[in-house]
Nucleic acid binder design. Structure first.
Lengths: 148, 148
DNA sequence: CAGTATCCCTCAAGATACTG
DNA sequence: CAGTATCTTGAGGGATACTG
């Protein structure tokens, strides 16, 4: 939304949501986060987004309290990005978009991609949001490397 | 989504939905359509979007079978844009975004804007999608002029 | 009033090189 | 590996003038 757009777009909850999440990458990042992606490099390869853009989006999502960056669960010296409660409450948005896409944007028989755990060979289950607060999501056991 | 983004974004239903609806204006147009807006000028004033952009978006939404353009219900020689069944099935997306915004992006007590019918002075009710197919939505009785 | 045609410009996004 | 810094490009979007 630009500065020139009419006031109603910023005073409307839909418009304001779109201000935060309505760019080309943010919702895809959140989608991947629901699929258990946590690390910069995994987001980067999965999305095919430029590094600087990804860094910028992650920063903005952290600023917007959609993600938190916290020390990585494995020993590595870097951050991992996990959904906050606010981020998890985007679940219905992602689900609604997914269902609309499945229903209207795929030919019958055409198959959706899923994230595949290259260790187990099994699809990574989509996370369901926690029902209430508490500790952050448990560390992902999977290292998602491939999309099928 | 650009040409360079990784394949998963186009084979994922979420990504594909975002290809169609993920720009700055499309979902806001659909939101207004749910609120009963049908005419070019009403969209234009309500959104504050440039005319050429609006024309382009409307065209794309018609191409994507989200809107249909049909002869205006009043005598006027122009088109009006109404949601198709596919467009109406975006209702959960708009609702999810609205609820997320209401819950997380407004201070307590801060009030949302609503479209107001300037003739009756009453808020325009949000449309609920028809349960099944059938005729297009009945002509809107309201001329929405103002946002409060 | 409902669009179309132009022109212009900003900023998002990409590529790449660099650092701890 | 996880970022940051820099440069460049192009598309998306705005303003405005024009037409039926």
């Amino acid at each position: 939304m630009t500065e020139h757009s009419v006031d109603s777009n910023r005073t409307c909850p839909v418009g304001r949501s779109l201000d935060v999440m309505g760019d080309r990458w943010s919702l895809l990042i959140v989608r991947d986060a629901f699929d258990g992606v946590r690390r910069f490099g995994d987001f980067q390869r999965g999305l095919g987004v430029a590094r600087n853009i990804l860094a910028d989006r992650l920063r903005k999502l952290v600023d917007a309290d959609v993600l938190v960056s916290q020390p990585a669960a494995d020993g590595s010296a870097y951050q991992e990005y996990v959904l906050t409660r606010r981020g998890e409450s985007l679940f219905p948005v992602v689900v609604a978009l997914r269902q609309w896409g499945e229903k209207h944007l795929f030919d019958r028989g055409e198959k959706y991609s899923r994230l595949i755990d290259t260790d187990t060979g099994k699809p990574v289950p989509v996370m369901t949001p926690r029902t209430a607060g508490g500790s952050p999501l448990p560390p992902a056991q999977t290292r998602v490397k491939k999309v099928v």
